[in-house]
Design a protein around this nucleic acid. Structure first.
Length: 287
DNA sequence: ACATCCACCTGCTCGC
DNA sequence: TGCGAGCAGGTGGATG
């Protein structure tokens, strides 16, 4: 379940192993993995071949590799996606969807995705070459982005008429936050997920961003969060940040701050985890 | 324009 | 043992 820190670990792997190399043969093994490339799999493989990778970028949970054309290869890992760097002779993974070989004959880039919620696409870069490609222009800057507009985020959040966790998960307001980091950030800020956004003070929103950033940095220090073998970095190693989670997936376990058993609530056909004492449910609640 | 809902996927775990 | 239900959940398009 990759969120920003996990995706950043993958970006660093791509930076190290893929940037500067020229693409050779590309094979799309599952059409769903390139469904966001509207021109189709054949167009993607044809346009990718022969291109040199110029960089490895990320915004929120999206990755893109600028190419020596006007395009970038955009990747989203969805729920279960992996970008692996593997020797050409390594056996195919069970859920291998796209194979990208390089002209140097070295390690391949493989997109592996059990559920195929993620995928790859080619998208035009903006004319000045900076910033994300067109298909992800709607994704807001993430909390670790130096260009993140904190005052603007406070204004936009308070202008919403929804619950604070819904706003946190809205990638057009702030990106990179999924269910895990939302719950952990809210716990650090001592906020309940159902707090109406318009009742949040500037200080509370700042506290929330601080909490999210702290938990993201902690995860990055440990190589990313993982609960099973689904999330791995480009070498196939899995992170182990789950040992440090305060509330997420910790129902019934003591809150690390006050010892009260962590509570699980249904939320948007998913789950939310809170400490009932540190994060009391607001009188007026918006789920 | 904004808020909310749900389909899209597969594999694992749990209870009967 | 078998089987169905529930769960994991990011995204974008549909709906309200």
């Amino acid at each position: 379940m990759p969120e920003l820190p996990e995706v950043e670990v993958v970006r660093r792997g791509l930076q190290r192993w893929v940037v500067g190399r020229t693409v050779g043969r590309v094979a799309v093994l599952h059409p769903r993995a390139v469904r966001r490339h509207l021109a189709g799999a054949a167009d993607l493989t044809a346009r990718l071949a022969g291109r040199t990778v110029l960089g490895a970028c990320r915004r929120g949970k999206y990755l893109w590799l600028p190419l020596d054309s006007a395009d970038a290869l955009v990747a989203h890992l969805g729920m279960s996606g992996q970008l692996l760097v593997r020797p050409p002779e390594a056996p195919d993974e069970t859920h291998l969807r796209v194979r990208v070989a390089f002209t140097d004959g070295g390690a391949e880039l493989r997109f592996v995705d059990q559920r195929t919620f993620g995928g790859l696409a080619l998208s035009e870069l903006p004319p000045d070459g900076t910033g994300p490609p067109a298909v992800i222009a709607h994704i807001a800057r993430d909390p670790l982005d130096p260009g993140f507009d904190e005052a603007g985020y406070v204004r936009a959040t308070r202008a919403r008429r929804t619950g604070v966790k819904r706003a946190l998960l809205d990638q057009t307001l702030v990106s990179g936050i999924g269910n895990i980091y939302a719950d952990e950030g809210l716990w650090r800020a001592r906020l309940h997920f159902a707090r109406p956004t318009e009742t949040l003070t500037r200080g509370e929103i700042t506290r929330l961003l601080t909490g999210v950033r702290e938990v993201m940095h902690a995860a990055l220090d440990q190589g990313g969060t993982s609960f099973d073998s689904l999330y791995v970095d480009v070498d196939g190693r899995s992170g182990y940040f789950d040992r440090s989670l305060a509330v997420y997936a910790q129902a019934g376990r003591p809150c690390p701050r006050c010892g009260t058993p962590v509570r699980r609530d249904p939320f948007m056909n998913r789950s939310s985890y809170t400490c009932p004492r540190c994060q009391p449910r607001p009188r007026r609640a918006r789920w």
